[in-house]
Design a protein around this nucleic acid. Sequence first.
DNA 1: GTCTTATATGCTGTTATGGGAATATATCAA
DNA 2: TTGATATATTCCCATAACAGCATATAAGAC
Lengths: 117, 117
Amino acid sequence: MPRLATTSDVFNAVAEPQRRIILELLARGERPVNDIAEILHITQPQASKHLRVLRAVQLVHMRVHGQQRLYRLQGDGLKPMHDWVAHFTHFWNASFDRLDTYLADLQTKESGHDPLP
Amino acid sequence: MPRLATTSDVFNAVAEPQRRIILELLARGERPVNDIAEILHITQPQASKHLRVLRAVQLVHMRVHGQQRLYRLQGDGLKPMHDWVAHFTHFWNASFDRLDTYLADLQTKESGHDPLP
DNA sequence: GTCTTATATGCTGTTATGGGAATATATCAA
DNA sequence: TTGATATATTCCCATAACAGCATATAAGAC
C-alpha cells in the first residue's frame, strides 16, 4: 500500500508545510492567488500548484472574480483529520479518564502485552 | 521549501495510511513487531521501518522484552497536530459562533476580499 | 558452541513530489 | 485588434519515499 496521492488524501495534502500555511491564511478570509504567493514568499506557479492540490481534496473553494481567482477555505474538509486525531486526545488529557494510564502501568508490570479484544 | 522528512515531521509521518493504522492498533495496547506485521498483513521489515519512522517523531515508544521489542503508543506526540486542526473546528461547528458565516456571506456579496488585519 | 526466533538494516527499482523556468490561457482595457 | 494583468499548465530535474528481498544483529534454547 503506497502513500496515497496528495490530491486524494487530506492527511497527505496537509503534510506539506506551505499548504498548511495557505490554509491558515485563508482561514482569515478569501484571497486571490497573487496575494497568497506574495504573503508566503513563493512564486505564483507554486501557489497555483498548491491550491490545485488543496482544491482536489476539497480544502479550499475557488470562485472567479474578473481576472482573479479567489480562494476560500473549506474548513470542513479537515473534519476527517480532526476526528481521527480526536481518538487519541485522552492520551495526553489526563482528566479524561485514568483507564489508559492504568492499563499502561499494568502492562509494564506484567512485562507482557494484551490480546486483541 | 521541500516537504519535511517523514522522520522529522508528525504531519508527514502520519500521512502514510499504514502508520495511522499502526497508531490505532497501538492505542489498544503495547505490541511486539511481529504482531503488528501480522495484523496489518505487511511484512516484518515493513513494520519495522514504519515503526522506526514513528519512533523518530516520538509517536511510539519501544522497550526491550527478551527477543521482542514492544511498541507502545506515545499519544501526546499527536498533540501538535490536534492543536493545529483545532484552529479550524469552528468552520464546521456552527454552534461555535456565527462570525465566519457572516464574513463569508459578506465577502460573496461584495465580490471582494478583505485585507490582512 | 549451534540453531532458532525476533527484529533491524541495507540495497535496488519505481514512483510521486516539489521547485524552477517557460509558456499557455483567460480576462480586462484601450 | 493589441497589450497588460492574473492565473494555470507543462516540462525537466533532484530528491525522498515506499515496496521487495536479502542479510545482519540480537537473544534465547539446546
